[in-house]
Design a protein around this nucleic acid. Structure first.
Lengths: 165, 165
DNA sequence: GTAATTGCAAAGGCTTTGCGGGCAT
DNA sequence: ATGCCCGCAAAGCCTTTGCAATTAC
């Protein structure tokens, strides 16, 4: 079995590679969405039936501190994770199905830089999230919700009344 | 005693005005920052020494549902509240002291609209937050931290390792 | 060999909620 | 009068943590 993308990043960072970390690294490497810890745990369980969720929490935190992961908060009370090596991008969340679309845009980039300068600040971080629904005409059928769709696309948990915009 | 700005909004919404709601409405009307529930509770206690924090939670939630307040999440695990009648704006958080600066900008506004159109979405919400520090030269002295500064400007709680960007 | 890591379960922080009594309309 | 609201304390949810056993280097 070849070494996963994130595992390589861990090794580059000099992290001690345990079986659990390798498992989590693999799950993260294979993900194309923005899973939360619970979902990472579920996926990890498939590979290692006795991994603990505490380990998942500890690992994502470690990876975040090492700059391998970025923690995101799309509302809903749970943090979601995004491998840094996917490059800088923003997110558009489809409110009908929770799907997250990534995008870049030099226009906003420029506008943001100008704002920071105008206000006299050096940016250390920025967050831009758009929430919307497909424009009528190409409206997606709000998928029949038998079982919650693959997480990362899951409808918001009860705790969330709407979203903090 | 004249009726506060937020109290008027509550009445317009047909809400039953209890003493506690009037208190919270007043606190919200007088705030110029983005307090969290704990801070609202502290301020409300000055006016009504026996108000309960549960009531504050219930009230901000109600006001949010009625569109009188907007819930914001600047990281740190607590929601912060922003009266809707202040108008649409974005936020720049000074990472050195937690202060929140509000701003508007037609440039980003336009860029965002263009992005939504390009992706084929109708926006129902958006979030833009910038995190930065004052540009060197006009660098603010990182205030001596005896007691936590007025909340809404409080340094992030321990739970927060950095910020979900 | 030794310091770091893991699993488990308990604890923590923020928020919600069940319940009996009280209050606005 | 009565349905909504309040305070209290307990519970819920996500996340962290203490501890003893285990593991990577």
């Amino acid at each position: 079995m070849t070494q996963s993308r994130i595992e390589k990043a861990c090794i580059d960072q000099g992290l001690k590679m345990t079986g659990q970390r390798r498992t989590i690294a693999r799950v993260l490497s294979e993900a194309t969405d923005h899973p939360d810890v619970e979902e990472l745990y579920r996926r990890a369980l498939v590979i290692d039936a006795k991994i603990s969720i505490a380990t998942v929490y500890r690992t994502v935190r470690l990876l975040e501190e090492r700059g391998i992961l970025e923690r995101r908060d799309f509302g809903g009370g749970r943090s979601r994770y995004d491998p840094t090596d996917r490059g800088h991008h923003y997110h558009l969340i489809d409110v009908d199905n929770g799907k997250v679309i990534e995008f870049k845009d030099p226009g906003v980039e420029a506008a943001i830089a100008k704002i920071a300068e105008r206000l006299g600040f050096d940016l250390v971080g920025k967050r831009l999230e758009l929430y919307g629904r497909k424009t009528a005409g190409e409206q997606a059928r709000p998928a029949t919700r038998g079982r919650a769709a693959a997480a990362g696309a899951a409808p918001r948990p009860a705790q969330d009344r709407g979203r903090a915009v």
